[in-house]
């Protein structure tokens, strides 16, 4: 590296100008390639390629003073309730009022199961009301259902194009019946939710 062309001393001096030797401009790049690929490997392994996607959720603002009466009433024939239980099961029925004769379907999260049922219900609403967007789906996850089920059902809403749906934490007597039959708890045993319903802590 640190070589210099030292003019040879002695006889040649003065007679002839020292000619610098022409060195080849070729450099062995093998080592550089090695280094390049090493770094590539490092960056490939350290990087996260698939960016996570975000599913936006808007919950209605909790207003303690607001009376429940103010909520808009929805006709039974426009509703569909989906209860999420444990073991990836979903229970669906039409109608929200307490009714002993209500028909409850149990299904799995699959294209043939839940999605077919939502589509069928959309068709029914379409026939009755002339617009399938009138359908209102009430999603009621039970405490033992998995987070995956909740994401799946929200996803189904997007896939089936359901415009109106809500996640609801209040249960009627039909839901209680379903919970009891399928061995699901209706309420969490502990936590802020329970405390909130018993005695609302003042927020600062």
């Amino acid at each position: 590296m640190a070589e210099m062309n030292v003019p040879e001393s002695g006889a040649k001096k003065g007679k002839k100008k020292a000619r610098s030797k022409k060195a080849s401009t070729r450099v062995d790049l093998t080592a550089m390639v090695d280094l390049g690929f090493l770094l590539i490997t490092f960056f490939m392994l350290a990087t996260t390629m698939n960016k996570p996607k975000a599913m936006e959720v808007n919950k209605p603002a909790k207003d303690k003073e607001k009376d429940k009466e103010e909520l808009p009433e929805i006709k039974q024939s426009k509703t569909y309730s989906i209860i999420l239980g444990k073991n990836n099961m979903a229970y669906c029925y039409t109608g929200a009022d307490d009714d002993a004769n209500v028909k409850v379907d149990s299904t799995f999260f699959s294209r043939a199961g839940l999605r077919a049922m939502i589509k069928q219900r959309q068709n029914e609403v379409q026939q009755q009301w002339g617009n399938k967007d009138e359908l209102f789906i009430m999603i009621k996850p039970l405490p033992d259902s998995k987070y995956r089920n909740m994401v799946d059902i929200l996803d189904e809403m997007a896939i089936c194009g359901v415009k109106r749906y809500a996640i609801i934490d209040e249960f009627n007597s039909i839901d209680e019946g379903i919970g009891a039959k399928s061995g699901n708890r209706l309420k969490a045993d502990k936590g802020f939710q329970i405390m909130n319903t018993v005695e609302a802590p003042p927020s600062n």
Partner: peptide, 28 residues
């Protein structure tokens, strides 16, 4: 595999702090 109970607890506490809009992270 997180139970809805645990998720709901977190969401309820967020709502208590007036966070009504949030993103659930999922894989595409």
């Amino acid at each position: 595999e997180t139970s809805y109970e645990a998720v709901n607890e977190v969401i309820a506490q967020l709502q208590e702090k007036k966070v009504n809009k949030f993103n659930l992270i999922t894989a595409g």
